[in-house]
Amino acid sequence: MQWITIFQKELLENARNFKWIWVPLVFILLSVMDPLTTYYMPVLLDNFGNLPEGAQINIPTPPPPEVFWMSFSQLNVLGILVVLLMSMGLISAERKSGVSEMVLVKPVSYTSYVTAKFVSTLLLTLISAFIGLLASWYYVNLLFGEIPFSYYIGSVSFYSVWLMFIVSISIILNTAFRTPGLVGFLSIAALLLASAINSVFKTRIEWLPPQINAYIKGYLSTGSITDDLWITAFLTIGVTVILLVASVFILRKKELAA
C-alpha cells in the first residue's frame, strides 16, 4: 500500500513536470528521424547537396531491418542521454533540498522509496521507447518494406531490459551523490565505461549487458532469438537487481550518517 502511494506521487510529479508529454514526443522524433533521412537522402542530395552538375551517387537502399535498427542506435545515443539527464535529480536533488528527509522521516522504507522512483522512471522511459519505435516501425514498413510486427515486439521487449539497466545506473549514482549535475555526468561516464569494458572483453565474456544491443540487431536481421540473447537478458536483469539493492543500502547508510 505504502509503495503504491509513493509510486502515485512520482507519477503525479512526472505529469506535472510535463514529462509524460515531452519524453514520448522526443523519443518519437529521435526514432523517426533516421528512417526518414535515409529514405529521402537521394532527394535531399539532389536538391540541396550543391553537387557538381552530372554527379552520380548511387546509395543502395538498406534492407528494412537495418533501417529499423538505426532507430535503436539513435535512441542508444540521444535517447539515453535524455533519460540520464532527465533522471539525474531524481533522488540527489531531493536529498540536497531535504525533501527526501521529509519523506523518509515518515514510516516509508528506503526500499519502497528507491523502487518507486525506479519503476516510475522506467515506466516513462519504456512507454516512450515503445511509442517511438512503433512510429519508426510504421515508417519503415511504409517506406522500405515489411518487417513483421512480432519482430517489433521481440526487439522492443529485449531492448527494454537494456533500458532497465540504464535507469538502475542512474538510480545508484543518485543515491551516492547529492549534486544532480555530477550524477548526470557520472552516469554518462559509467555507461561509456560499460561499453568500453564490453568491447574489450566481448571475445571472452559474451554476455555483458551492453552486448545485448548486438544480439538485438542480430535478432532483427535473422528473426531467431539466440541463447546468447536470453543469457545476456537474464544477466542484465540480474545486474539491475544488484544495482537496485546496492542503491537501497547506500541510501540507508548515507541518510543514517547525515
Partner: peptide, 13 residues
C-alpha cells in the same frame, strides 16, 4: 530548444 528548457531550464529542486 524545448528539450534544453525541460532538462536545464526548470530547476531540479
Amino acid at each position: 530548444g524545448p528539450i534544453l528548457y525541460f532538462i536545464i531550464g526548470r530547476r531540479q529542486d
